[in-house]
């Protein structure tokens, strides 16, 4: 009896571990192969570039992972990024004296407000998250466009301390990477060890059961969307600081890469499973693939196709795990 109960649990935990392990393995193989054919892939500058490019994607993926775990989706993140980036860039070019902390705060607030709107429409308007965030993807982008018109904020209009922020580092770790690590680590911890995190998993596993169990579904759902929006807003600030040039088209189509990072990172689209640090690893994998293509001299155009294929592969893997768990549970039932 105890053996019968223990066996599926072992399979289950084993498979869950395999997901993140699989990404790490894929990363090791990819980096190893690329480095073998071109050692410069592992030079300090190259690694630094990869980490800087991962940082923005990973910050957004952390927020998206939380939303997907609750069995929702936030497609508006690319547009929130551009709204926040343009707001902050305009603000900084008008008030060069403002400290970096203020810029980050403004980005978080702009993004958080956008997330709040998404959350309210999903929860209180009872409109599916897909429809809401598809709509706000359009709306936020449109707002940025009608505000910016054809103009862009150029690097020479921005204060120096804002631009150097992206390249400054403490103890050799760039600020951007440090922020991404803190965000991914912090949100992972929140989801793993804190009450709200566990409640979000419960909501994703079964929304009705979560409601009946007395979980404050509305508050948590709003929290998840605000977090996703705020992190997209933060990513906007990082984007503006890193690239210096911001126009209304910034981050167009980025939502695809963010969703890809999350799904590839092992967060199931049915909600209720996956980890935030897995999503962070997914973001790293996608960026490494992009860099590896350049280093291996493979046509850059393949990158998007590979992202698409990876998304489909990842969903297939999730499905396989789900089917296997269901089978092992059924086997357990038949023994009893």
């Amino acid at each position: 009896m105890t053996a019968a109960v223990a066996a599926p649990r072992r399979i289950f935990s084993g498979l869950v571990k395999v997901r993140e392990l699989g990404i790490i393995l894929a990363l090791v193989v990819l980096v190893g192969y690329t480095a073998a054919s071109n050692p410069r892939f592992l030079s300090g500058q190259s690694i630094r570039d990869i980490l800087l490019n991962t940082a923005i994607l990973a910050v957004m993926a952390a927020g998206q992972a939380v939303v997907v775990i609750t069995r929702n989706i936030d497609l508006s993140v690319g547009s929130v990024l551009s709204l926040s980036a343009f707001t902050v860039a305009t603000l900084m070019s008008d008030n060069p004296g403002l400290p970096m902390v203020a810029a980050i705060a403004v980005g978080l607030v702009v993004g958080g407000a956008a997330g709040l709107l998404n959350g309210v429409l999903v929860r209180y308007g009872r409109v599916p998250a897909l429809v809401v965030t598809l709509g706000t993807l359009y709306m936020f982008r449109g707002i940025t466009y009608s505000w910016a018109g054809g103009q862009q904020v150029n690097a020479d209009e921005l204060p120096r301390h804002f631009l150097t922020f992206a390249n400054d580092s403490i103890l050799g770790v760039p600020w951007l990477v440090l922020i991404a690590l803190v965000v991914v680590g912090g949100v992972s911890l929140l989801m793993r060890n804190y009450r709200m995190g566990r409640e979000l998993y419960a909501m994703g596993s079964s929304p009705q059961a979560a409601e009946l169990a007395g979980i404050k579904v509305a508050r948590n759902l709003l929290g998840a969307f605000i977090l996703s929006g705020a992190l997209a807003g933060l990513a906007g600030v990082l984007f503006a600081a890193r690239f210096g040039t911001v126009d209304a088209a910034a981050g167009t189509g980025l939502e695809l890469n963010v969703v890809a990072a999350v799904v590839v990172g092992g967060v199931a689209v049915f909600g209720g499973s996956g980890t935030v640090w897995g999503a962070g690893l997914g973001a790293l994998l996608l960026t490494v693939i992009g860099s590896a293509l350049t280093v291996l001299d493979i046509n850059q155009f393949w990158q998007q196709a590979i992202v698409g294929a990876l998304i489909i592969l990842a969903i297939c893997a999730d499905r396989l795990v789900a089917v296997r768990i269901a089978r092992s549970l059924r086997k357990k039932d038949s023994h009893v």
Partner: peptide, 23 residues
């Protein structure tokens, strides 16, 4: 055939087909 959710599948093929178009 595989019973995958259509939303996720077609987000994947959205990226895949557009990528192939570029290729």
């Amino acid at each position: 055939g595989l019973g995958l959710p259509s939303l996720a599948v077609t987000i994947g093929t959205l990226a895949l087909y557009r990528g192939l178009a570029l290729v």
